[in-house]
Amino acid sequence: MLNLKGPQGRWNFFMIAGILGLYGLIQLLAAAKILLSYHLQILSLACINIILVVSLNLIMGFTGQFSLGHAGFLAIGAYLSASLTVFYQLPFWLALIASGLAAAFVGVLIGLPALRLRGDYLAIATLGFGEIIRVIILNISAVGGPRGFTGIPRHTTFGLTYFLMIAAVVIIKNFIYSAHGRACISIREDETAAGSLGINTTYYKVVAFAIGAMFAGVAGALFSHYMQFISPTTGQIGFMRSVDILIMLVLGGLGNLTGSVVVAVFLTFLPEFLRGFAEYRMLIYPVLLLLMMLFRPEGLMGKTELSYSYLENIFSKFKRKGLRPDGTN
């Protein structure tokens, strides 16, 4: 299980200490009224965005399946959980689990037929599925139809989103660095070769889709129970939201978890703290996207992941340099 021995263990220990320390610090600042509820809301939204981006990264960045319907799974989570807590007075944690499972189930349902398609056809099909989910919600008057779902209780706290975000990142990271994750990566790299090596490509595509959808569903439940309101607009649960998530993913780098986290936080903060930026957002992001694809298609972080082995590499380079002051090897 958790390894706390040796250098890797020390790294794990520091990571856990850092995660808890950051949480403690934020709570302390909140108690001291330095961070107001407005700040906590932005922080929570950043965590929710991290969950969304990291889960899309599993589908698109690691498994190589272009999905433009990620917001559809968010929609399922947001609306299902809200219906469960509002109409059936279910405890929130139960609604949260149900949202994740329902989104995963729909993910499999959509994934099984759609994943036979490749590349841009898959992108368009997932876009279609996402919009169909939105139109269906638009037509259910019990959840407010086009007016939106109001009166959702506020169950989401910053702590809950924070730790669920950590859980999502750790689970997806561990999945990626297991045999099953490698199978997904091999599909991205060369589906034909993957099949010839005994990898059931359909199965792993569906698995990636299901896990990704599950976390998007959980993010949706967190979102609707934080904002206490959700409306079936394209910017909130439709195509434009999917594109928002996609932009964060691409800027952070397809297949780079550290990048996903950093960019999700950065792009959630930026419009809040840079006045006037929100207005020009949709003019600047597309240009960034284009420049990125042209000059740095692997994302801002490239292939670098924040990990023990990365730091070890840097460290050993330092050491080598120290031993040979002239800089030769």
Partner: peptide, 14 residues
């Protein structure tokens, strides 16, 4: 791949 016998869950839980 085919020689790995651990499940997705034990991969996640290490």
């Amino acid at each position: 791949h085919s020689n790995f016998k651990y499940s997705i869950l034990s991969g996640i839980l290490r």
